[in-house]
């Protein structure tokens, strides 16, 4: 599996380009502005952390970036494709092709083996079974679980389950890996393990967006955006390593 070779921040177009992004929720007569105009560019190969307390609009931003929800106003261009006004079917396809999700609760299907779980996005992409199995196996080997391909999630530790989820996120070679509190359900040992894996992916050229409320987790990223009241506070802070 070759990660796209990239020379960051120079001539390339951004993977993510948010302009004047606003999201308003209506609950009866009550309006709630979750995002109040966010502008942001993320370039290929970047490792970005989005931090903020709960209720800051962090989760809304994650849903927007993951094409799980659409903006009320403003625009979102993902890998050169304007997804701001896409319908549900087009959004599903955009998620499938462009985004690799890593969730806090792993979200593996217990009825499937590790390999079956990793194959899942490829099934919706219409990839033929033999090709699917081969690519899923490569992804599992990449996260160091080549020998656990036939195990079901229940037979794996939390850290191993999250690694299966990372393999599932990588298998489609997405434009970004979107990790939502990936260590929230892990002990400290597994946390180090999973964060180390994200570091490796970054080193190999993957674009990673990490959403977290833990500052020590955010510290692993190259750039940190702080969300408060639906807005970025200051611009991206580059972290000196």
């Amino acid at each position: 599996m070759t990660a796209t070779a990239i020379t960051p921040f120079e001539t390339v177009a951004p993977v993510i380009e948010l302009s004047g992004a606003r999201k308003t929720y209506h609950t009866g007569d009550i309006e709630f502005e979750a995002l109040r105009g966010i502008d942001c560019r993320i370039y290929p190969g970047e490792y970005v952390a989005i931090v903020g307390p709960s209720g800051s609009g962090k989760s809304t931003l994650m849903n927007i970036l993951g094409c799980l929800d659409v903006l009320t106003s403003g625009s979102y261009v993902l890998a050169g494709e304007d997804v701001s006004h896409m319908d549900e079917v087009a959004l599903a396809s955009a998620r499938n092709r462009r985004i690799g999700f890593v969730f806090q609760q792993f979200h593996l299907l217990s009825s499937l083996t590790a390999l079956g779980n990793v194959e899942l996005p490829l099934i919706y992409a219409g990839v033929a079974p033999a090709e699917r199995r081969k690519r899923a196996m490569v992804a599992l080997e990449r996260v160091g679980l080549g020998d656990k391909s036939r195990n079901h999630p229940g037979q794996l530790s939390g850290g191993q389950q999250q690694r299966v989820a990372i393999a599932r996120a990588l298998v489609t070679e997405p434009a970004i890996v979107l990790a939502d509190e990936p260590t929230g359900n892990l002990d400290s040992h597994s946390t180090r393990d999973v964060l180390g894996m994200l570091d490796d992916l970054h080193a190999e050229g993957s674009t990673i967006v990490l959403i977290t409320h833990e500052s020590d987790v955010a510290a692993r990223a190259g750039t940190v955006y702080n969300v408060t009241d639906g807005q970025f506070v200051g611009m991206g802070t580059e972290i000196a390593k």
Binding site: V89, A92, S93, R95, N96, P121, Y124
Partner: peptide
């Protein structure tokens, strides 16, 4: 519900 949500997140269209 969670399985359905996950499948959708991974790219399943409503028709799927």
């Amino acid at each position: 519900t969670r399985e359905i949500g996950l499948r959708k997140a991974l790219g399943a269209a409503p028709a799927n």
